[in-house]
Design a protein around this nucleic acid. Structure first.
Lengths: 121, 121
DNA sequence: ATATCATATGAATACTTGTTCATATATTAT
DNA sequence: ATAATATATGAACAAGTATTCATATGATAT
């Protein structure tokens, strides 16, 4: 049996189902959690970074090679590697002048596959 | 035993390890796949959309209620719902003037949890 | 028909972001 | 030291995007 509607004003917003809103509000995620989550997914939301991650899931590579592979400037690649480093998705080791990048964690592969599964329906 | 370096120029880019680049290049994803994947993750890369998705993972809700829940304008919510609709992450049913939104698929919940698992380390 | 309410949407704006360009740093070779 | 090479980075610019504002649409009630 449907309960009757009881429209309420709250913070200038009309609430039609205050019971549902109250319930969901109590279970809502912390703002910082949502922010962190958004940042995490945002990193995967760029073709260049996805290609880099995919490439590194196959083999560690240096900046030069990644630039050649993706036909992009060394600078562009380097900037994106910085983003991936800062979000701890990749790690690196230095060997002389050359810096080798690799995935930080197999966990990343899983997220990637998860996305691929969706895209391929 | 490390193979000696054989720097090559390709499309204006220096290649240090041409064997690795060639190998990875052969296995590289199609551009359209990468694009679709980026679009998919991009949708999850916004706090407002994440909150909406999370809310809908608990209960179906109408636009009014979502606006009240997130303390945002009806218009802002409606615009984001459009994005979520177009990417087929949510579906809706109409009951008179009221439009009820819900997750399109339990699969979305899984991606969400996957992200949460990462954020919570 | 008219008013009201829930939702949708186009345009404008403010903000974010990916790439380029120029340059800096660091390591190796001469 | 000097030159060459691999990588990093700050600033500028272009392209993309989330929200607001004003308004449109569509349904219900009077």
């Amino acid at each position: 049996m449907k309960k009757e509607k009881n429209n309420i004003e709250f913070c200038g917003q009309t609430i039609i189902h205050d019971d549902v809103v109250r319930d969901v509000n109590e279970r809502m995620l912390f703002d910082e959690t949502v922010m962190a989550l958004a940042e995490f997914f945002k990193v995967f939301g760029d073709p260049t970074r996805l290609k880099i991650l995919y490439a590194l899931s196959i083999s560690e590579m240096c900046v030069c090679d990644l630039a050649a592979l993706l036909s992009m400037s060394q600078s562009a690649i380097s900037h994106q590697l910085k983003v991936l480093r800062q979000t701890r998705l990749i790690k690196y080791r230095k060997d002389g002048k050359v810096v080798y990048y690799s995935l930080d964690d197999d966990h990343i592969r899983h997220v990637f596959e998860q996305g691929l599964a969706h895209v391929n329906e």
